[in-house]
């Protein structure tokens, strides 16, 4: 995984620059999301991993699966096909998930926003959600793109996660911390 991210970085950077220069960040986001979901499928993974199948067959099959005409803008269709071909040629198709993750990261930096996952122990009201988002926007000084999840395992409180950074105010987090403190 760690190695895949290292491999994925130059591809993600290249795609981001193309998308940014053409002012098509959302279009590329949509395409990479589509492609990463498709390549995440077990059958597709085993097909890609099969070394007896040549790279052009792999890329052609993937391209055939994607309904370019109805799904993506004409401006990026050729670039997308070239992108899949080059990934297949260099044996990097399995890195698409990481390329997408890095691409999203670059887009977020460009737009001055961060993606935050907020886990709560029980359902909270929209007012409470807004309050949390405002607090986080002030804390990080960025636009917040928040995803709320209900996780009963937290027992109480909340847990906020953005990238590697975690703000844990959950009951289970505190209990775990207490466990390590009293361990003799």
């Amino acid at each position: 995984m760690a190695e895949n991210i290292t491999i994925a970085r130059p591809y993600a950077k290249a795609v981001f620059h193309i998308a940014k220069n053409a002012n098509m960040l959302n279009e590329w986001d949509k395409f990479l999301s589509y492609l990463s979901i498709m390549i995440n499928d077990e059958v597709v993974v085993s097909f890609i991993k099969n070394k007896t199948i040549s790279y052009d067959i792999k890329s052609n099959l993937i391209i055939e699966f994607i309904d370019f005409e109805n799904t993506f803008s004409k401006d990026i269709q050729n670039l997308c096909v070239n992108f899949i071909n080059s990934l297949s040629y260099y044996g990097r198709l399995l890195c698409v998930k990481d390329i997408y993750a890095l691409y999203k990261n670059y887009v977020n930096i460009e737009l001055g926003r961060i993606e935050v996952v907020i886990k709560v122990a029980s359902t909270i009201s929209n007012i409470q959600k807004d309050e949390i988002i405002i607090c986080l926007a002030n804390r990080f000084n960025k636009k917040i793109s928040a995803f709320f999840e209900v996780d009963e395992n937290l027992l109480g409180g909340f847990l906020i996660k953005t990238g590697d950074f975690v703000l844990d105010s959950s009951l289970i987090g505190n209990l775990n911390s207490l466990r390590t403190k009293i361990m003799i």
């Binding site: 844990d168 207490l178 003799i184």
Partner: peptide, 21 residues
């Protein structure tokens, strides 16, 4: 153990987290 529980400071824990790969 009692001493450690008394000294325990509960609240928001800010941490940097990763995953074992």
């Amino acid at each position: 153990i009692r001493e450690r529980i008394e000294k325990f400071d509960s609240g928001i824990i800010a941490k940097n987290e990763g995953k074992i790969v």
